[in-house]
């Protein structure tokens, strides 16, 4: 499935959608900026360089915050946290969700019943309030956020993977494989996995988007880590340190804009992948 010719063909089709390319471009730009942060950021974000609440100037392109830290620098470094938390949280969700879905769908029976009940329970509870409650008990911090997001988020993917596994399981080539005497692991890896790979990747990308947005939200509410500022934490401080009252739009707009842009990027990529994989499987 990962043969070179497949990838080339895949890229050719992918390229046709302008939004998909745009999404990829945005994400790439952000990743580059974040990786090369020390070279790009004009100042060290832990140092108080300027006066408080300075509006944008040539010295400080995005002004300063309430304690005189350069916002542009803070912004670039914050991207690291936002993206990292997003990626880790999304990975956990994808791994848990797909595993549950795969096992549940493939083995069926009692295992399926139990896992699906658990999935239902998780699905029925309102996500954000639950995350907030859990985060409140566990205390604020990056890992709390990653944890609560994973606990709440795996269920939906599990459901989708499971239904895909079920439909592949019933298909004739799996029957044929079994008739030849193939074992479970073999069937799982060579038949089922390639067919669910598509949904997992597409949903995985969307999960990254949701994870980033969720981290931003939870941090905004004060459940993030004040020492490791993400974009969400920046907005939290903007809110409680009076950015509104001071009219410090340069503090309010940029972090949110970054979150929006990178989410948008992942969204476009994820939607395109969803369509492409859906088409390949002939479903939709």
């Amino acid at each position: 499935m990962l043969k070179k010719s497949n990838l080339i063909e895949f890229w050719r089709v992918y390229k046709q959608r302008k939004t998909a390319v745009f999404g990829l471009a945005i994400v790439a730009v952000f990743v580059l900026a974040i990786v090369f942060a020390p070279y790009i950021a004009p100042y060290d974000p832990s140092l108080r360089i300027g006066a408080a609440f300075e509006s944008p100037s040539w010295q400080h392109l995005l002004g300063t915050n309430d304690i005189g830290v350069d916002i542009l620098s803070e912004l670039i470094y914050a991207g690291r946290i936002s993206l990292m938390v997003g990626l880790i949280a999304a990975s956990l969700v994808v791994m848990t969700g797909s595993t549950v879905g795969l096992i549940s769908g493939y083995f069926g029976g009692v295992v399926d019943e139990i896992l699906m009940r658990m999935t239902d329970i998780v699905l029925i509870l309102p996500r954000f309030p639950l995350m907030i409650v859990m985060a409140a008990y566990l205390g604020p911090g990056m890992w709390t956020i990653i944890f609560v997001y994973s606990v709440v988020g795996w269920a939906s993917l599990a459901r989708q993977v499971r239904s895909q596994v079920l439909s592949v399981k019933e298909s004739t080539f799996v029957e044929a494989s079994r008739a030849i005497g193939a074992g479970n692991t073999h069937i799982m890896t060579s038949h089922i996995l390639p067919n669910i790979g598509g949904i997992i990747i597409a949903n995985g990308v969307m999960e990254i988007m949701f994870a980033i947005l969720t981290e931003a939200g939870l941090s905004f509410l004060g459940l993030g880590d004040p020492t490791h500022k993400s974009w969400g934490v920046m907005l939290y401080f903007a809110q409680i340190r009076g950015a509104f009252l001071r009219g410090a739009w340069w503090w309010i707009f940029p972090p949110g804009l970054c979150i929006s842009l990178i989410s948008c990027g992942f969204n476009f990529i994820g939607t395109a992948l969803n369509d492409l994989f859906g088409l390949k499987l002939g479903k939709r």
Binding site: L235, G256, C264, N267
Partner: peptide, 28 residues
């Protein structure tokens, strides 16, 4: 395409930030 893209883009923006902008522009 335009409708889809536009709406997807708006959907990507975090809710609380949209609220903040509205509050800032129309409130303050």
């Amino acid at each position: 395409s335009i409708l889809q893209t536009f709406s997807l883009a708006i959907f990507s923006a975090p809710l609380f930030w949209v609220a903040m902008i509205l509050l800032y522009v129309f409130g303050f």
